[in-house]
Design a protein around this nucleic acid. Structure first.
Lengths: 249, 249
DNA sequence: CGTTATTTGTGCGTATGTATT
DNA sequence: AAATACATACGCACAAATAAC
């Protein structure tokens, strides 16, 4: 118990999560200083170094900023589309006004690259391909590769296993309730790609047209990758906006 | 000198930069293990904790991943990402491993669209066009439009006013020290676009090839837009990475 | 199958430097 | 000038995962 909590969760991660929640719960708004390292160390019965490690993570997430000699402060969430990160909930919210149409139903498939990105030992994943439409018009083509355990959890979902099925579900929405541990974060990578012919046909554009390619790897709370989604968006109908800000000073 | 180098640069940052360079220079491809913490500590004459600190930063940048009991590995560049830009500092850090080559020197130009995006009254901006290269290869074509005050501040910078000049500056790095108020944030918008002919020539790709287009508007601390940068990246050599989180609402 | 060596992960203690108040 | 608070650095100990035997 000297190095880890009984649950097996690191003390600095517990502390980081508590502080994250407190900040998201607006408990340190408008420039209020957070407790000092020494105060938190005393409160949580850990060393100052452990507190520092928690803060270090929060800084790299952009949750707080620190000023030597002054203290630690919650990062300002100014007005409108405030954060540096989009959120998972935004993605789940997709189902509110879009539909999903299955092009190729969920089934097992050998894909070494996808398997390695999901950090699987085997070379097979479970794959489903669909279009996302809005008002009847397709704007995004998605290929989803699933961890075997995730595929298991979705095996009985008719909306994914029948070709041509139309529904308003999201994969992560389904996974979130059916997996033992919920989805906590996603690593997103954005680049551009030319439309392959079948993809162009599905999206109603020309082969070779530029598309915005967005890859997302979804991780559960225990950092296990469960889903790799490869999206191709029509750029006229989608652009990704972020606000960057300064770290220190 | 026990806590900092004479230059005032932290030892762990020096080490992190060296390792970053080595990885970007492809010195640890195809799953080669990086040196262990103990080896690096001995080589750089620092403690193991200092090495860990450096690795921690590289992990949060997505440059490497670590496996207990096995070692540290360069993150796979499936789509060839270079960097994660989560903050303004990351963009300023570009000068560490890339060069800038002027295609069209800084000069006044009428551009109503750019002027309005910079919230100018007039319809003229100051514009400079350049390539950004890494290891001698161009990966990004950039058109920068400047607020008159910003252009004034950069008027005597030979690296921007002479065609063909090659340097390792960043515009925001220059502006940050020369403007009365520093740069505080940027609004970024990402989409895909086909390469126009002159752009394709400059980047060494074909006309019509898909490019990642990233527009950024930089704002000073008093919310004054001073720079509009329109970047076109070669997707093989660049992808934009973000981490999405739960509960950020 | 356990044992051992290697390597990273976590935690604590201490010392000193630097920035702010 | 002094107190406060964060920043960097080194040291040690032990835990946990992995691989080799």
């Amino acid at each position: 118990m000297s190095s880890k909590d009984q649950n097996g969760e690191a003390a600095y991660k517990v502390l980081a999560r508590e502080l994250r929640q407190a900040i998201l719960g607006r408990r340190y708004v408008d420039g209020t200083r957070l407790p000092t390292e020494a105060e938190l160390a005393a409160e949580y019965q850990v060393s100052r170094q452990t507190v520092r490690r928690a803060f270090h993570d929060l800084v790299s997430e952009g949750m707080v900023y620190r000023v030597p000699g002054r203290g630690t402060f919650a990062a300002p969430r100014d007005g409108q589309y405030l954060r540096q990160f989009g959120s998972i909930e935004d993605l789940m919210g997709l189902s509110l006004d879009t539909q999903l149409e299955v092009l190729r139903p969920l089934r097992r498939k050998v894909d070494i690259d996808a398997a390695s990105r999901l950090r699987l030992d085997s070379d097979a994943v479970h794959t489903v391909v669909f279009l996302r439409t809005h008002n009847g018009e397709a704007f995004c083509h998605t290929t989803v590769h699933l961890h075997p355990a995730a595929a298991e959890a979705l095996g009985d979902v008719a909306e994914l296993t029948e070709r041509g099925a139309v529904s308003d579900v999201t994969i992560i929405g389904l996974l979130d309730t059916r997996l033992p541990s919920p989805i906590a974060e996603a690593e997103q990578s954005i680049t551009a790609a030319a439309a392959e012919k079948p993809l162009a046909n599905a999206l109603g554009c020309h082969a070779g047209d530029p598309l915005l390619r967005v890859d997302r790897i979804y991780l559960t709370t225990d950092q296990q990758p469960v889903e790799l989604a490869i999206n191709h968006f029509l750029p006229e109908q989608y652009s990704y906006r972020v606000k960057l800000r300064r770290n220190t000073r």
